[in-house]
Computed example of a mutant assay.
Amino acid sequence: MSRAFTPKVVTANALLEGDVIYLTADDRWSRLHHEAELIEDEAHAQLRLLHAQSQRASAVGPYLADARPGPDGPEPVHFREAFRTRGPSNYRHGKQVEQSHV
């Protein structure tokens, strides 16, 4: 018996800056996880991944990451993905500074 499909988001790294990015439903790349398209169908997830892989001028290493619906949009399921939403861990700037004021 096959397992139920876990919802996904498409994530990658921005080609020039290296920031973590997420594919949105309207085909933009966003640096905000909650703006990502939450994909709840396995076939659609594979199509979205193929689309992301074709975006070589803007995204590196796209893959599907498990996610769950949240009150403000998709939320990461695994520690690794939650960690990636916070940005680089070697110094405080960007997302880390912005989140420390919240």
Results as ranks from 00 to 15, higher is better:
V9S: 02
V10L: 12
A12L: 06
A12D: 00
A12M: 09
N13M: 08
N13E: 12
E17I: 11
G18M: 08
D19W: 02
D19I: 01
Y22C: 02
Y22Q: 05
D27K: 09
W29N: 06
S30P: 04
H34A: 13
H34T: 12
A36D: 01
A36M: 03
A36L: 05
L38A: 01
L38M: 00
L38I: 00
I39L: 07
I39V: 06
E42D: 08
E42K: 10
E42Y: 08
A43Y: 07
A43R: 11
A43H: 14
A45H: 02
A45Q: 07
Q46N: 08
L47N: 12
L47Q: 15
L50Q: 14
L50W: 15
H51K: 12
A52M: 09
A52Y: 09
A52N: 06
S54Q: 12
R56K: 09
A57V: 08
S58Q: 12
A59I: 10
A59Q: 06
A59G: 12
V60P: 07
V60A: 11
P62D: 00
Y63A: 11
L64H: 04
R68L: 08
R68Y: 04
P69D: 13
P69R: 15
G70Y: 07
P71V: 06
G73R: 06
E75P: 03
V77C: 12
V77I: 13
V77K: 13
H78M: 03
E81A: 08
E81Q: 15
F83G: 00
F83E: 09
R84A: 13
R84E: 14
T85I: 02
R86C: 13
S89N: 14
S89T: 15
S89L: 14
N90G: 14
R92T: 10
R92H: 07
R92C: 05
H93C: 12
G94N: 02
G94L: 03
Q96L: 15
Q96V: 12
V97A: 09
Q99E: 14
Q99V: 12
S100A: 15
S100Y: 02
